[in-house]
Structure formats: structure tokens, C-alpha cells
Design a binder for these strands. Structure first.
Length: 303
DNA sequence: ACAGGATCCTGGGGGC
DNA sequence: TGCCCCCAGGATCCTG
């Protein structure tokens, strides 16, 4: 599952291959992605676009093109971007193919579960696009104070807050669990109960875990390969994620697995002690009186 | 306004 | 061996 380290690794692998190439044509598959990008897909019918740069924001891949446009790619759960020779047979679930020149290669977007999305944005609207998404700060740029402020606002648990891209961009299920273990914080602890010191520790843990994962070229479980079948190695360093029942690497207590924010959540019951005033099963119902409609985050295809 | 559950989607694994 | 069912999870939609 591509999270920040996996996306960063893909970007680093793609950038030298794609930069200065021209996209001379696009072929669209018959299956729709989850987002209805296909009907909205507006690729210029004439002229080509040169790839100027490839970079990342949160879990988004940004392919900067000439003529002030950006190709935005989100890999979702199972998305893969791969550069392949044109004569190499297409794998199943290939939804989008960009023909490159010079040379006889293609950039292919493959996504079996179709949770990913691809779109074209004017470069001038890139900032606006991420603002409409309310995409939070990059983990390497967020200050302890900002993280503390973000957590203070919510009654959700830390696990849910870390998964929320508006709090901090790029964290998914794996790195949320690993970060909370590193910070010795219980995943069910309520955001607004976190102290400034704990928020500082969480920020340091986040940076440490993500840096190490990037060094290891991400985690390869099931679907993720960063470049033509090459795998990351961080899955060999998981300390809690997918380690249910295994001894904690610090204290040998069996790692526990519970369900939080709709996701499997792994932690050490001893190193990440239960919080004092944890959200009770039926507690937090005081919010019942709230009413009205939340502000809609624009769909990807809205721009 | 906010939190949490449901939803989409396919491949893999477990149980029978 | 083959079939069925469940689970995995990112982002968004829906409900309370």
C-alpha cells in the first residue's frame, strides 16, 4: 500500500527516466477508476508535453509538464506507475498508457483495485487543488507546535488523526502504527489529550520512521514494487505492523491488534500504555447535538 | 461540525 | 482440488 515512503521511492525512480521525455499520446483503458476520471479526462489532442520534473506532495505524485500543466497521480491501494518498452505486453488492469518519445517506451498506470486516480491540473492551480483537499503539512516540515495544535482540535484517537491527510500528509496504516510505537503512545489516546511534550515526541518519531522507511525504499507487501519488480525492504523492519502475537522488540510483550478508525491497529500493550481517560464505548456521544452539513472536499475530477 | 461506519475493488488466503 | 467467504486499506460518502 503506497504511503509516503513508497511514493517518494517511486518518484525517485521515475524522475531520471521521465524527465526530458515527451508525452506524445495517451491511451485510455475501458475500465473506469473509482473516480470518474475517464469522462472528465481532457488530454490535449494535438501537440506533445515535455516532462519537466517529477515530485511528491503527501501521497500524490506530481509530474510537471511543459505548457504549465501537471499530471497528478494517486496510487490508492494498488496503483503502479511503470515505464516499459512499447512491445512489452501490457499487464492486466492497465488503465492508462502514456506514449513517450524519443525512444519506444510507455508510462503505464496499472491499478487492480482501481482506488487510484489520475488527472491533469493547470500548474497555477496546483496549490489551490491541495488547498481544496485541505492537505496537511509534509511530515518533514511540520513543527511540533503545529502537530500539537492539529491534535488539540480533535477528539478522535491518535490513530485516526494520523491517518487524516489534513492533519499531516502521507501517513497510512503501516506508518501510523510504527510511528505510535516509536513514540510510545497508545493509538487510542485522544488527540486533544496529548501534551505538548508528547506531540513533540510524535513528530520526532514520525520523521525517524519515515526517513528509515525511505532509506529502505518503502515496504513491499503484496502489491507494491517501486521499479520494474524491485521491492522495498522496510517490511523486514516492522516492529508492530502485522506482528500480532509476536514479542515486542523492546519488552517481549505480545503485540496486540485491535480495530481503530476502521483499520487494523497494532501496538505493544506495555510500551504504549493504556491512556487514563480513554474514550468510552458510549462516551463521546455528547456530540450528538451537532447538526448541519460538513464542507465538501472537492472531488479530484472537479477541477 | 465532527466522528465513525460504509463503500468501492480485486487478489490472496483460510476453511470446508 | 475447488469453491466460497472474508480480509486488506485510501479516500470519500453517508449517517447520527
Amino acid at each position: 500500500m503506497p504511503e509516503l515512503p513508497e511514493v517518494e521511492t517511486v518518484v525517485r525512480a521515475l524522475a531520471p527516466v521521465l524527465c526530458r521525455q515527451r508525452i506524445v499520446g495517451v491511451r485510455v483503458g475501458s475500465q473506469r477508476l473509482r473516480r470518474s476520471w475517464q469522462t472528465d479526462w481532457k488530454w490535449p489532442t494535438k501537440g506533445s508535453r515535455r516532462v519537466v520534473a517529477v515530485r511528491r506532495r503527501g501521497k500524490w505524485i506530481i509530474v510537471e509538464l511543459s505548457q504549465a500543466e501537471c499530471l497528478l497521480v494517486h496510487l490508492g491501494m494498488t496503483g503502479r506507475l511503470q515505464v516499459a518498452p512499447r512491445d512489452q505486453p501490457e499487464e492486466p488492469h492497465t488503465h492508462l498508457v502514456f506514449q513517450l518519445a524519443p525512444g519506444k517506451k510507455e508510462l503505464r498506470f496499472r491499478d487492480p483495485r482501481r482506488f487510484g486516480s489520475v488527472g491533469l491540473v493547470p500548474a497555477g492551480d496546483l496549490t489551490g487543488f491541495f488547498e481544496r483537499q485541505r492537505l496537511g503539512p509534509e511530515p518533514f516540515e511540520v513543527t511540533p507546535g503545529e502537530l500539537f495544535a492539529g491534535l488539540r482540535k480533535t477528539r478522535r484517537c491518535l490513530k485516526a488523526a494520523l491517518l487524516d491527510q489534513r492533519v499531516v500528509a502521507g501517513v497510512g496504516n503501516i506508518y501510523a502504527d510504527e510511528t505510535l510505537f516509536e513514540a510510545r503512545l497508545h493509538p487510542a489516546k485522544i488527540g486533544c489529550q496529548v501534551t505538548r511534550t508528547e506531540a513533540g515526541g510524535l513528530q520526532r518519531a514520525l520523521v525517524k520512521v519515515l526517513r528509515r522507511a525511505i532509506d529502505q525504499k518503502g515496504s513491499s507487501i503484496r502489491d507494491y514494487f517501486y521499479e520494474n519488480g524491485r521491492q522495498g525492504n522496510y517490511q523486514n523492519e516492522f516492529r508492530v505492523y502485522a506482528q500480532s502475537g509476536s514479542p515486542c522488540p523492546r519488552c517481549r510483550t505480545p503485540i496486540a491488534c485491535i480495530r481503530l478508525a476502521g483499520r487494523s491497529t497494532h501496538f505493544c500493550p506495555k510500551c504504549q500504555p493504556e491512556v487514563r481517560s480513554q474514550k468510552s464505548e458510549d462516551g463521546s456521544q455528547a456530540k450528538k447535538q451537532r447538526r448541519g452539513e460538513g464542507q465538501r472536499v472537492p472531488r479530484f475530477t472537479d477541477f
